[in-house]
Design a protein around this nucleic acid. Structure first.
Length: 506
RNA sequence: CGGGCUGUGGCUCAGCUUGGUAGAGCGCCUCGUUCGGGACGAGGAGGCCGUGGGUUCAAAUCCCACCAGCCCGACCA
């Protein structure tokens, strides 16, 4: 660049949010579109974030009694077809394997051959194939509960892919459990919802509304779907994790039956719950600014980057040595019970190019260490949650001992900022006109960032949901778990048990 | 999957109307001066113009088909 730009990312969030999002992902080298339609390449920095999420969530699953296992990628069509509502929900987005060989034809082109007797569906989710195993494993109430999770990829043939938010293939975890009683299964559903809410809040610094999906938004085949809904910076909602109470629907379809304490045959009560790589996109949209990604320290692949400043050849050795020493001291420290993730960037670039790369990547703390600092025994410290030009001279020893505390403060600050943003854009609405006004952009041709979450009463009917979706593209994101007083539906005047969360959504 | 727009070095795009053998800026490489907030100079590499067919002496440019991407709908974690 010949001229310094005002912001590292253009357009800005205000100018064009969807385009800004794409540019941030690219500038930070999180991921890029691949040659395969709808599929993305997750680059090391993006995958590092996912690996941290994975490791931390996995520990939470273990702590709640779950173990990991792995089930096949391919699901026989007949398995998949066992649960009618389930099939209907996924039918339109399945990839199906129909052949087992490639042959070269007369023109030299590759063609599939050897048709399979039974086509295989590439898993869009694994209820049915896991159910088949569970049916074999469960005979007595003594075999229950089964509490398993798998980390894997799934395929849903989506029509409009967006990096991380909606891709044809994505990575996730899916937990699948079987219980002896309805109460236990319902309890499990709530427990895992709680895990997701905690994870989003404490690890990703994202406040979320936890609640129940309406009938029209729930998982195909579920009795009840619970969700956590986060707000991102264009004030839209995004589903960041789900937990389903499946009743006996899938147990009946898969034949998961056991002899209960009374000696009678009974179907198991199952749950399933998942969180996906979409969370990486959610973190970007929730925290990133016009200079790039801003990462919560707990999920940052690198928490502190050390930038050696080596203007003169004669001091370079000394500076690098000091950087190594600093890195070693920092790594001996812990934040959130894990050693600090520290990296030294030794590349010799002119100007601030190197610095800006790390700003765009969102590393929480940048530390410059040069000859002048060496003399003063200090470092220049920059926090990504503060304006990018800010720099603070700190005595090295003090920085080393305070680093975990600073990371904690950044983590907290990001959460508080996100919470404040969400609360500022969440409105309690008690009449239809205000509701319509809230969700109508001033410039329909190129809608500005508008709306947010509306907490409003609703009569519980599908008709109203459909009408609002049709009129405003607004849907019920969830029926919150938290209490609220009864009232009157703002669209019909009919009785309403509690306020529900309305928003435009990803 | 329906409607609209777009495919030209890594990125953003000009050239296409009026066919004549490919350009700019940024990025990249080399050398030098620089380096504590997106540096400067000089030199250099890199494109069968999305794919396939057609028209023509000649196609990035005209015609047809297909593929991909973006936006708007429907669908979704």
């Amino acid at each position: 660049m010949t001229k310094a730009e005002k912001t590292a990312i253009s357009p800005t969030r205000e100018q064009d949010f969807p385009e800004w999002y794409q540019q941030v992902i690219r500038a930070a080298e999180l991921a890029e579109p691949s040659d395969v339609r709808g599929c993305m390449v997750i680059r090391p920095w993006g995958f590092g974030i996912w690996e941290n999420m994975q490791r931390q969530l996995d520990a939470m699953f273990r702590a709640t009694g779950h173990r990991n296992a792995y089930f096949p990628l391919f699901i026989p069509l007949s398995y998949f077809a066992k649960e009618a509502e389930h099939v209907e929900g996924f039918a339109k987005e399945c990839a199906i394997v129909t052949h087992s060989r490639l042959e070269v034809d007369a023109e030299g082109k590759m063609k599939p051959s050897s048709p399979l007797t039974e086509p295989l569906v590439v898993r869009p989710t694994s209820e049915t194939i896991i159910g088949a195993s569970y049916a074999k494993w469960v005979q007595s109430y003594r075999d229950l509960p089964i509490l398993l999770n798998q980390w894997c990829n799934v395929v849903r043939w989506e029509m409009r892919p967006r990096l991380f938010l909606r891709t044809t293939e994505f990575l996730w975890q899916e937990g699948h459990t079987v219980h002896e009683t309805e109460a236990e299964a319902r309890e499990e559903t709530q427990r895992m919802l709680g895990v997701y809410e905690t994870f989003a809040r404490d690890h990703c610094a994202i406040p979320a509304f936890a609640g129940e999906k309406s009938e029209s938004e729930k998982f195909p085949g579920a009795v009840q779907t619970m969700t956590i809904e986060a707000m991102v910076q264009d004030r839209k909602a995004i589903q960041a994790g789900t937990s389903h109470f499946l009743g006996q629907n899938f147990a009946r379809a898969s034949g998961i039956q056991f002899q209960n304490r009374e000696g009678k045959q009974e179907f198991g009560w199952t749950t399933s719950w998942g969180m996906t790589t979409r969370m990486v996109g959610t973190v970007v949209m929730a925290h990133a600014d016009d200079d790039g990604v801003v990462l919560p320290p707990r999920i940052a692949p690198t928490q502190i980057v050390i930038l050696p400043i080596t203007p003169k050849e004669e001091t370079r050795g000394q500076v690098l040595e000091a950087c190594d020493k600093l890195a070693a001291q920092l790594r001996a420290n812990k934040y959130a019970n894990l050693p600090l993730e520290v990296e030294i960037d030794r590349r010799q670039f002119g100007g601030g190019v190197r610095n800006w790369e790390w700003i765009k990547k969102g590393v929480p703390i940048r530390v410059e260490l040069g000859p002048r600092d060496l003399e003063k025994n200090s470092v220049e410290l920059s926090r990504r949650d503060q304006p990018v030009k800010g720099k603070q001279s700190t005595v090295t020893g003090e920085f080393v001992s305070r680093a975990p505390e600073i990371l904690g403060s950044i983590q907290q600050n990001l959460y508080q900022r996100a919470l404040k943003f969400r609360d500022a854009n969440t409105r309690t609405i008690d009449n239809k006109e205000e509701f319509y006004d809230f969700f109508t952009p001033k410039n329909p041709a190129k809608p500005e960032i508008h709306g947010g979450f509306a907490l409003a009463h609703w009569n519980g009917s599908r008709e109203i949901e459909d009408k609002i979706k049709n009129d405003l593209k607004v849907t019920i994101r969830c029926i919150p778990v938290s209490d609220s007083e009864p009232g009157r539906c703002i669209f019909t005047g009919q009785a309403s048990k509690k306020r529900v969360v309305w928003a435009k959504a990803y």
